[in-house]
Design a protein around this nucleic acid. Structure first.
Lengths: 227, 227
DNA sequence: TCCTTAACCATACGCTGTACGATTCCGCTA
DNA sequence: TAGCGGAATCGTACAGCGTATGGTTAAGGA
């Protein structure tokens, strides 16, 4: 887009900068190199454009990230549930889809989850499938509202662990064992005993099955509020 | 500390810079003005010291935040459970204490939760009370490990919502109603119906009771894995 | 007393986001 | 067809960031 580098409005036929093109390039940078690499200068560089040109399409850097959040969540509310599913399974599917959407862009997810300003309308409607399933389950509006909050909170926390915290501790089983072994005597005795009982091999954690079992716990808990 | 501003090693009796003093000042800045305000220059300014002096006590800015994480979690593993509690209630208490520790420094919490590099030994042993309660409950090591993960993940997600996401959406009930009302026709129908049924007044969300009911769900779910 | 070294400060580099203003040319109207 | 408003770009510049490097001072062991 105007790789000539000359100032002034581009020629009529020439490809011009656009919000979409900017967001696409930004998402690529974030996915490939992480959020820190996504600077306005770097972004402009990959677009072959002056940094200031971006500001004609997006007001500031925060708006770029908010735009990326939209891209990631786009269409998530419109996903149709599989036919013939119980409302419980439909609810689990909603959680799976939500997790998958964020997993697809792990670097961005951490940013979005912890940045309230990235929450736009597109993100809000993202919870529609949760509402749909619980409504089918016959819950009261109030109970739907609270259950969705609990469920979404869990998914966020799970993703947080999956994408960062546990990657730095629990996932690397040998690392955790090392940490525990280096602990001062008498510090965290139960943790130590359990971790050492599991050992380096037994500590491997399968995120997918962990997610599934947690979903089972949560959904059956929600069911119990019906009775 | 050496407010004179002269170069050179401080006199013998003079109060000197220390890791603790730096972290205390840093925590104050973060609590009062947020993480973005916590710059090395700003930190040095409140300490009456040259920015580079800090680097004698802490290797870089990341180490400052890692140190703050330690401060927040310090002693959390050593909290003794109240006497005569069932293991289920002891488990809930652990979650409550964990939440409270992070709530005490909301600005920092967001940073720590999404920054894997802030995870140090002090943070790892933080889960000891969870392990203790579940061990008392008679769970297998593997089940303890997974249950703690699920529980901690939920608390993280809940805090994320409590501290940021929901503050920008659900907590401000009128705001959510506004957003829903401005949605295009046919977009997120169930969400719209439920939100409008609750109305501006019915949408107020009590985080404390939300946390408690979620704990009940989770603990009973964990119990069910025992049978 | 000398010498090492801890603990401070000054300067400087390469980055960042973005305010401001100049430039170029499209597309509409007279 | 001439003129013109404004859209879209670029150039320059500024304040602020983290921190590498190296200089300066005095404490405290030899």
């Amino acid at each position: 887009m105007n790789t000539a580098g000359k100032p002034g409005r581009p020629r009529a036929g020439a490809e011009r900068l656009s919000r979409d093109a900017i967001l696409t390039a930004a998402l690529r940078i974030v996915d490939d190199e992480g959020v820190e690499a996504m600077t306005m200068r770097r972004l402009a560089g990959t677009l072959g454009v002056n940094p200031m040109s971006i500001y004609h399409h997006l007001p500031n850097k925060a708006a770029v990230f908010a735009g990326l959040a939209e891209v990631v969540f786009a269409g998530l509310d419109a996903v149709q549930p599989r036919a013939g599913l119980s409302w419980q399974e439909e609810l689990k599917d909603a959680a799976r889809a939500y997790r998958a959407a964020l997993q697809a862009h792990p670097n961005l997810a951490l940013q979005v989850l912890s940045d309230p300003s990235a929450v736009s309308d597109v993100v809000v409607v993202t919870v529609e499938p949760f509402y749909r399933a619980l409504d089918r389950g016959g819950l009261e509006p109030r109970a739907i509202f609270e259950s969705v909050n609990t469920l979404v909170d869990f998914v966020h926390g799970f993703l947080l662990g999956e994408l960062s915290v546990r990657a730095a501790t629990f996932d690397l089983a040998p690392d955790l064992v090392d940490r525990v072994e280096k602990l001062p005597e008498g510090k965290a005795p139960t943790l130590s005993r359990v971790v050492l009982a599991l050992g380096r091999d037994g500590l491997h954690y399968d995120f997918d099955s962990g997610f599934e079992s947690a979903l089972t716990v949560l959904v059956s808990g929600i069911e119990s509020t019906l009775r």
